[in-house]
Every structure is written in C-alpha cells, then in structure tokens.
Amino acid sequence: MIEVKALHKRFNDNEVLKGVDLALQPGEVVTILGPSGSGKTTFLRCLNFLEHADSGAIKIDQDWVNFNQATSQEVMALRRRMGMVFQNYALFLNKTARQNIMEPMVLVHKVSPTEAYDRATQLLQTIGLGAFGDYYPAQLSGGQQQRIGIARALAVHPTVLLFDEPTAALDPELVGEVLKVMKAVKQAGVAMIVVTHEMQFAYEVSDRVIFMADGAIVEQGTPQQIFESPKEARTKAFLSRFKVRYA
C-alpha cells in the first residue's frame, strides 16, 4: 500500500506541485500523463527524495513520513522500498550489467555476493540479456541499458517502482523491448507509477491513468474512461493530439 498526501513543491517563486494526493493498491499500475512542465517528473523525484518536497507526507507499507521532517534513516528506509527507473538509464558506467544489478543488493540490502550474483544472472535471463552480464553500459544499446536499469531497480524486491519517462530517450524500434519488460514487472505484482508519453502502454497496461497539468491532478480514471470519454477540457485537448496513436 502506497499513499501520498498533499505534496507541495516550489522552485523559488514557481509552484511546481500544488498539493498532489495519490494512493496505490499493492501491485497497481498507475500511468501519469500530462504536458511538459506539469510537474510529473518532479512528483516522482519528490517521492524518492531526490528533490526535497516542501510539505506533504508519504507512506509505504509502514508509518507516515513527512517530506520536510524526514530523518535520513526514514529516507533510507523509504528508498529501500522504492525502485527508480530513469529516462537516461543512469546505469553505473564503471560497472558491468551484472554488477549494476548486484550493487544495491549487496551494498544496501546486505544480500550475500553469491546470492546476489545468482539473482542478477536470473534477472538478466528474464529481460533477455543473459549473454550480456559482463558488458559495460557503454557497450550496450539504450534499450538494453534501460532493461538493465529496470532489473537493477527490481532486484531488491521493492513495493513500488517509479518510472521517469523510461522510453523517452530511446529510438522508436527499441521502445518495444522496454515496454515488454515493464509488462513483465506488472505480471510479477510490483506496483508501478509510470510517467510516460507512451499512450499505447498507458492504455493497455495501466490499471489507472492520471492526467496532470500545472502541478495538480486534473482527472483520473481507468484507461477506458480517460482515453475514450475524458471529462475535463484540458484532458481532451491533450489527448486529441495523440488520437491517431492509440486508436
């Protein structure tokens, strides 16, 4: 169970998030859509404490933690239950694919190196990169790197995975392989919050779609509700530009 309430964030005079509330059931997949600058990415980064939110609270499995009063222990404990997948993959460039997946298991979750090695190898098989364990990120394509990024986040059995435009930096022909892995993550029962412009994915895979604009949630509902009969004018205007792609 993941809950966020009244998340506020401002950069100087610019109020980026104007009190965002969100609650996810275990294993639920929520897609956040919205125009650039609507605060989607900032919202994810605040959840992970990569940005310092001004106020609000978060709860994952355990007690509520206030964003502006969290101790570093609380932050660490929350991060251990979250995984984050970045737009630019953010694999450790000095480590091989397998070492990237092993790193958080061994360092943060104190899994034994042999156990971590086996789980990394198994995850590499799952994402179709069984033969690439000893490759460095620079030797892999963007799609391959992003699949490893997902495996790295997934390796430590998080309650929720946060995806920050995971396919935005990819060549179109590489998007499919990443989306396939994301569908597999859903099958595994891990909750996901996905910021994306992949309407097909939002429509097919998510349990709920949220439309955000100007730092607030404008509308949310099932994919069918949002894509087929949006209520708000802003949602309609935004989706009309994508009509061709999901129809």
Partner: peptide, 26 residues
C-alpha cells in the same frame, strides 16, 4: 554525470558508498 548520483541515492546508497563505488572509480 549528476544522474549517477541520482541513481546511487535512489538505490539507497550512503554518501560513503557513493564515493567509494561510483564517484572515485569514475
């Protein structure tokens, strides 16, 4: 790259671990 530090933090690594495993080796 800054994103390397984001990755380390999001994975729950401490500053010391980030220095030893990411910053200095890179």
């Amino acid at each position: 790259k800054l994103v390397q530090f984001d990755a380390a933090r999001s994975l729950g690594m401490t500053t010391g671990q980030t220095i030893r495993r990411v910053l200095v080796p890179q």
